[in-house]
Design a protein around this nucleic acid. Structure first.
Lengths: 127, 127
DNA sequence: GTCACTGCAAAGGCTTTGCATGTAC
DNA sequence: GTACATGCAAAGCCTTTGCAGTGAC
């Protein structure tokens, strides 16, 4: 493991994750760092987020965009992704844990994690 | 739209999709075509599958492998993906439709599609 | 002073695009 | 003959890797 060094880039990246309520991608993190006058290299941001991810500090989401998004790890929840404006809403989860129990007993499959995302149109974009 | 031409590559690709019960990736399709003595270019396979996808003939799955998989479109179901041997099992879905209704009424979000995949260990790999 | 972090360049994997050629109809 | 389909080359994106230089401790 080694010692964790608190560099400006890491501190600012964590700050950004704390500030945003939607999952963010690498580019958004870079832009935030720029706004803080940190010209951090893209590769470095990848490595910072990889570190957070391996530590379990952030979740890595695959919202079928061809790239990953990240959010601070928190309780089980899912996302509503608008096809039109790309807004991402959180929804809490009550059903899936029950479903997982059923699957465990019925299929003898040991579930470690799951992905559940909903795609469609948010209220605004339905008009 | 235009006329659909039944080329050897398209016919064989559809044949392969019908034969397999697990979602397949582009490489597997190419290998099947090769086994049928069709040296189809990778780009062509991408275009064939894109065509099927846009027609609604196949579903496109993102199992977080950094690539897509495809399967013939069929009733609502989900997948159990083994982290160890990569086996993919189907499971039928009864819960999510209800969940979608709840979300529609509670969040006013119009759901068009969803992804639900479970990752863990299959029976064999738990030993 | 060490060891970890960063920057730069490059590469790797999947997918898409442009354009000329080939082929199903 | 006319579109559409294919092949080839190249590029586009996101992400990862190698290595030398920098900086936190």
């Amino acid at each position: 493991m080694g010692i964790i060094k608190k560099t400006p880039a890491r501190i600012a990246a964590m700050e950004f994750l704390s500030l945003t309520d939607s999952p963010v991608d690498i580019e958004q993190i870079i832009n935030y760092l720029r706004s803080k006058n940190l010209n951090t290299n893209k590769v470095t941001v990848y490595r910072i987020i990889e570190y957070f991810y391996k530590q379990g500090i952030v979740n890595r989401l695959d919202l079928q965009e061809g790239k990953f998004r990240y959010e601070l790890a928190k309780g089980d929840h899912h996302h509503l992704i608008c096809d039109n404006c790309s807004k991402i809403q959180d929804i809490s989860d009550t059903v899936v844990p029950k479903l997982e129990e059923e699957i465990n007993s019925k299929h003898k499959f040991l579930i470690k994690r799951h992905s559940l995302e909903f795609f469609g149109l948010c209220l605004n974009c339905q008009k």
